[in-house]
């Protein structure tokens, strides 16, 4: 069972002088998952990622990658081959060409001869930089540089990718391209741990999420479970008649949590804790009560709303 876990941490703690950046984190990420790490600035996401990437030594606790313990002195040559880390800043050698840069890193990861050549072509193809292989890095756009950094991160075919804010500062098209690449990597079986402030991106990519606050991992579960547990369904109902009558009728349904008449309109927003079938039953009951319903629209709170809600609870 343990072998199926790509990441496992035990009481992982990082202290900088008096400040505890990461606090007793017990994180488990199953192999093949895309795990999103959410949290406000200073929550400890980057420090956690850096420790997992062997870029930072934990003050306390243990890290297991693919079941193997990461040594405290960070001299794990074998484990380093399993990891690919893309930090939020991605310094590059501007004087090198795209090809030379990737070739250099492929050699650092001990890829030799033909295998290296093949891998370089494949990776350039994947990140859509084949046409730029002889261009100097200095001439690339930010989006291209970001993709080149990702190419460097995956050049040695790691089984675990650690991506820290990989789409920050990218325009919508570049973000879409980047998302697409990550989906391809996920399909190829890589385990991906990704942190991002663009929560809609995470919602689209992730299978599980962890929420960090004040250095603690306060929530860690499958995205589906999180939605079920914390995301409320909302129903927007429009009527040709009186909104107050509609409100009275809605109050009779036990699954309706709160009702708000939108000012100046004949619309009512309803907090609803039932399933889709329950919502259909509610609609049926309203029609049966002969209310002139013109619109009945079900929506669900997105990841951003859940996160803000959680964040608010924490702050208070």
């Amino acid at each position: 069972m343990a072998a199926e876990l790509a990441i496992r941490t035990e009481d992982l703690t990082k202290q900088f002088d008096r400040h505890i950046a990461v606090h007793g984190v017990e994180l488990t990420v199953a192999a093949g998952e895309v795990y999103g790490l959410i949290g406000p600035n200073g929550a400890g996401k980057t420090t956690l990622m850096r420790m997992l990437a062997t870029a930072e030594e934990p003050t306390l606790g243990e890290i297991y990658i693919n079941g193997e313990r990461l040594l405290r002195d960070r001299s794990n040559a074998n484990l380093k081959r399993l990891l690919g880390y893309l930090p939020d800043d991605f310094p590059l050698y501007d004087d090198l060409t795209v090809w030379d840069y990737l070739d250099y890193f492929a050699r650092l990861y001990k890829l030799n001869g033909d295998r290296r050549q093949r891998r370089l072509y494949d990776v350039l193809e994947l990140v859509q930089l084949s046409t730029k292989r002889n261009s100097k890095i200095a001439t690339l756009s930010r989006g291209m540089k970001q993709r080149l950094s990702l190419a460097r991160t995956i050049i040695h075919e790691p089984i675990l990718l650690l991506l820290d804010e990989p789409v920050s500062g990218l325009d919508p098209i570049a973000r879409m391209q980047f998302r697409q690449i990550i989906k391809t990597l996920q399909e190829a079986g890589m385990t991906i741990l990704i942190s991002s402030h663009v929560l809609s991106d995470l919602a689209e990519l992730c299978t599980s999420v962890g929420i960090m606050e004040l250095g603690f991992l306060v929530e860690s579960c499958r995205l589906q479970d999180l939605y079920q547990r914390l995301s409320r369904q909302q129903i927007l109902i429009s009527t040709l008649g009186d909104a107050e009558i509609l409100k009275r009728e809605l109050k009779t349904n036990s699954l309706v949590a709160d009702i708000e008449i939108l000012a100046g309109t004949n619309q009512v927003r309803v907090g609803f804790s039932g399933t889709e079938e329950d919502a259909a039953e509610l609609l049926r009951s309203l029609i049966h009560a002969q209310l002139p319903i013109t619109n009945f629209q079900c929506t669900q709170e997105d990841l951003e709303t859940i996160f803000l809600k959680l964040g608010h609870q924490q702050a208070s």
């Binding site: 990437a53 380093k80 081959r81 890193f105 650092l108």
Partner: peptide, 8 residues
């Protein structure tokens, strides 16, 4: 820092 993360 990147070079440090490689198995070299």
């Amino acid at each position: 820092n990147f070079i440090r993360l490689t198995p070299q």
